[in-house]
Design a binder for these strands. Structure first.
Lengths: 336, 336
DNA sequence: CTGAAAGCGCTTACAG
DNA sequence: CTGAAAGCGCTTACAG
């Protein structure tokens, strides 16, 4: 029923080998035969069958994206961060007609065998992993012969992994520095989950800590217990208010928006008698009132670069185990 | 190198046919042989190769998701709606170990041959399509022998398509009705793009229109010219303010948030001397101040139901061309 | 209930 | 530069 290499070969009056080679740009054929093959394929409406190709080459042209499912099963809804990463990935993949992305989300405990089966049955060529995972899960991943590109992972380094991060420490520093310069003194760092939970958040904390120590100010940590960042923000807001803090650095924008939400209802003029800096510089931060001052990190670029890195790893085996740190920047709006 | 049916057959001392049949739950074998096969597979760490299976069965267990790329290439970033749909899809697919989702985004003009090639080369089993598309594109889709489940599509109906929508007309009606009951009179409907652009938005408009006509109030349409909904919202806000409107029904929450943003800066007390109702009831509507009154539609459920529908279409060929309308509901907060 | 054989559509040594 | 042949790992008639 469907058109195969055999048909194209017959139509172009060449062998199947030639058709295959021309399609994969392998041997250098005379321009004449090349065109004959291409024309025949066009006339017949030939489309290669990727499953057959995969069977023989042992490659699927499938890229696996691994996402953490922290909170509950609604990862994407909860955090815009992943969508932006996804947009970055697709903006590159759009120009790679034969590559497709398949997605798997992994719980904190890491569904080791499940993901492992998925990689094997689908013959996934390479992995994009966002975030931090159970160490046994990473070990299992590292044991496979496929390249892995990690975004926002500060865990143990594996030889077949490459890493892309923002300069989170610098971000924490810039945020705290800004609040100090604005004249605030009792400045807390607020996080959705306990700081030790995440090496990434820990980096942001270290930046905050460095700025505070330089200024000779005490460190205050207000750690949430996970869950929805908005709710965590409102709870943080309540403590900030009751314990008479001057300012806060929130380790993510959604948390900061929750803080604003609470403080506004106490008639605190955020930006005047209370300073607030977020992290991520999401679009939404510009829409709330007062508009959120935040540390911008290049999220789309993270997705793009990770995808490009993986693609070049797959196509030309560029060096593995690189580490790239993207710069961050303070974006000043109304809250600090 | 990898374990195949052949190896399992040898280990279990049965034929490859038996292994294949047991794995696909086909013929009824003695419990003894069944267990022998399963045990052998486990001992050897056998994992079926989906590409090989696909080659012979002509099925890929791949579901194709088609998303519109309205604004620019950053579809997911621009609208949380798609993320929620995605979460709904994955919440079902999580329990379907052998099914995977691959995503393609389609521009307004509809990249017909591109998507068509994608479906053929990957042998996509079924399509989930969100939103509205060029009619030629839909026609091409309908020409293929695979089931298509549409979310939020009010266009021409095709025999192999099924449809899932919210009751958008009722939503428009509820929104306008609420504003009328609150005593507002000069009530506009605001949209990101011209109303004729989208049959879906048109439905919401018809609901608004019905309520206004019942009350004997005039219709006012404030149509944006596409682009970022926040920006469109601020522009709408400016007109609402200058032209002294009492209230507005925004056809999506993001637009409403832009309106709030503008009006707040003019010191309009939204919810008191100006009424505002959005559509979608996104999380973010609860975080802005004042909190947004909105029409809730069941977005996660849309994704879930669409996926379940497609899955049952693929597995047991349930009836095609069904149409499901999900109820909507007014969620009252501070803006109306 | 079981097994030997053919074949899905492709690529890849290998010989010419 | 080209072609005949083998084989990737699976399923599916078909015969026993």
């Amino acid at each position: 029923m469907s058109v195969t290499v055999k048909d194209v070969a017959r139509e172009a009056k060449v062998s199947r080998t030639t058709v295959s080679n021309v399609f994969n740009g392998r041997a250098k054929y005379s321009e004449e035969t090349r065109q004959a093959v291409l024309d025949a394929a066009r006339r017949l409406g030939y489309k290669p069958n990727l499953a057959a190709k995969s069977l023989i080459t042992n490659q699927s042209n499938l890229i696996g994206l691994i996402l953490p499912s922290y909170v509950d099963r609604f990862t994407l809804t909860t955090s815009p961060f992943y969508n932006i990463i996804l947009d970055g990935i697709y903006s590159i993949l759009q120009n790679e007609p034969y590559y497709d992305l398949i997605i798997h989300s992994v719980t904190a405990r890491g569904d080791i065998t499940q993901v492992s089966d998925w990689i094997d049955t689908r013959n996934v060529d390479g992995i994009l992993a966002v975030g931090e995972y159970d160490i046994r899960f990473l070990k299992e991943l590292s044991g496979r012969a496929i390249p892995v590109v990690c975004i926002d992972n500060y865990q143990k380094s594996y030889p077949n992994f490459s890493y892309i991060n923002s300069d989170d420490e610098a971000g924490g520093y810039l945020a705290a520095r800004k609040l100090i310069e604005r004249g605030f003194r009792k400045i807390a760092i607020c996080s959705v989950s306990p700081l030790e939970t995440s090496p990434l958040i820990r980096k942001r904390f270290e930046g905050y800590q460095r700025a505070m120590q330089e200024a000779g100010y005490p460190i205050y940590t207000l750690e949430g217990s996970g869950g929805n960042p908005f709710d965590a923000g409102r709870q943080a807001g309540e403590r900030l208010y009751k314990e008479k803090f001057d300012a806060a650095f929130c380790t993510e924008d959604m948390l900061a928006i929750g803080v604003i939400n609470f403080l506004l209802r106490q008639h605190v003029v955020v930006g005047e008698n209370f300073g607030l800096v977020g992290f991520d510089n999401l679009n939404i931060g510009r829409q709330v009132h007062p508009a959120l001052t935040s540390i911008e990190q290049k999220i789309v670029e993270k997705g793009e670069i990770a995808t490009k890195t993986l693609l070049s790893l797959l196509k030309e085996s560029t060096p593995l185990n690189t580490r790239l740190i993207l710069p961050v920047e303070l974006v000043e709006r109304e809250t600090a």
